[in-house]
Design a protein around this nucleic acid. Structure first.
Lengths: 243, 243
DNA sequence: CGTGAGATTGACTATATTCAACCCTAGTGG
DNA sequence: CCACTAGGGTTGAATATAGTCAATCTCACG
């Protein structure tokens, strides 16, 4: 489904109903959220929030992909998070974010005004609990990424990145052939992995030459040899035989 | 104060009373925690929790320093968090940790059995809210560290590390000369910064040669030129003039 | 005072970056 | 319908930065 096809839906039919911040809500709670929400679309490349900008809305990502990134004075940038459908933007008790939030694909947000939402969080343990879980999931993801950034080789970084996309594709139950669409340009992938875009390109083509993946077009990847890919991530010695 | 001198205290007199998970608790809530808590000491180098081990206790770090680290099959390790006094170990809804928790100095924990504590969290919004804040603080710290790991040079990493220690020393109100004690060995610092211990050593001595810091003994550092140190972190162009 | 873990230093190497040229290809307008 | 163009991607050569391996030093401790 293309993002531009998206139209507002009732919460009960929302594709992220069971995973977003509203996951634990019962009917009454959902009705309140329903009355508060507004949808907003963004085009690929558009900045959703600038670092330091006051945070008037919080939101759930309905579909599409967004990135969180930090930039140094001299222009070096590092992506510090990747937001996928059901992920949450904004946090209780903070009035601004200290990174940029950018749409890497077309995307749709389900937004709530921050102030009323914060009031709702206090009154609704189901939402507070789910927010806590989401924050802890992000923390786990950040820590895995720290290991990647600090200790993995370029090859392992690329393999880990592709494997992550593959896992997600399999988990989301869609076609279980391993054809993936890259949600980012080489440059953005480089910023995510702490590499340069040239190194990203070289490693993609090295894996292709070895027959681990195949590439076609700019954003299509197919995983040809999942076992070899797993081995190349450096994460485990058995190439993921247990999964 | 040496850790070994620490003896159990009443919560009201606890050094981390206003920053730990109990920060928002009123007298009644504090009385409940008081009745549940037990103190436990660890020696420097001792492992507090192994990755994957079942989590029977959660705890606040009363004093000393602990580290969270992940290790790859081939032995490469990356520290993914540094725990300072008032930081919390363990999390609601998870029965194990997926990193090792190690004491880098002598330290004292204020422990609670996990099950009763989780029950208390549900019944006590003051604790749940504080846990959320602590989790978000950790998330911010992790993201800053991702920028460091992914994009900073060895020199910038070392300067950032020393600056962080200096900030903390100033903040904790202790003597405002900039003499610091390193809470870790070169090897541990290397694991924190995504470097090798040789590179850590070389960069420390380069900064010393340039007169930015001075070193004496194994763990004593003095910041001689804070402005130069700030500049060397790469974080801002003005060397921190506004602070 | 001796010992050993931790730290330093040096020489060499490897990996990824930098700089530069060139190549696709999707989208545009003639 | 085709040629043009620009943004993204690839490839190569030279370089730089941090890693590796190895020898030596030094401090803190018994």
């Amino acid at each position: 489904m293309k993002n531009s096809d998206f139209v507002a839906v009732r919460c009960e039919e929302c594709p992220i109903r069971h995973r977003a911040v509203c996951a634990r809500c019962d009917g009454d709670e959902l009705a309140i959220l329903e009355s508060m929400k507004t949808y907003k679309q963004y085009a690929a490349g558009e900045t959703i929030l600038w670092r330091g900008e006051p945070l008037d809305y919080v939101a759930s990502l309905v579909h599409g992909v967004a990135s969180l990134s930090k930039t140094m004075e001299d222009g070096r940038t590092q992506m510090v998070g990747l937001l996928l459908p059901s992920d949450f933007i904004g946090r209780p008790g903070r009035t601004e974010v200290e990174f940029d939030v950018v749409a890497t694909t077309e995307l749709t947000l389900c937004r709530f005004e921050r102030k009323p939402f914060e009031k709702l969080v206090v009154e609704t343990p189901h939402i507070a609990q789910r927010l806590m879980e989401l924050a802890l999931d992000e923390l786990d993801a950040a820590r895995d990424w720290m290991l990647l950034l600090g200790r993995k080789t370029a090859r392992e970084k690329i393999a880990t990145f592709i494997d992550m996309l593959a896992q997600r594709s399999l988990a989301s139950g869609s076609a279980n052939d391993l054809k993936l669409e890259l949600p980012m340009t080489r440059d953005q992938i480089a910023n995510y992995l702490g590499l340069t875009l040239e190194t990203v390109s070289r490693q993609f083509n090295a894996l292709k030459k070895e027959g681990v993946i195949s590439l076609s077009g700019r954003k299509e990847i197919e995983v040809v040899d999942l076992l070899a890919l797993r081995t190349a991530t450096g994460d485990d010695s058995d190439g993921g035989m247990l999964s």
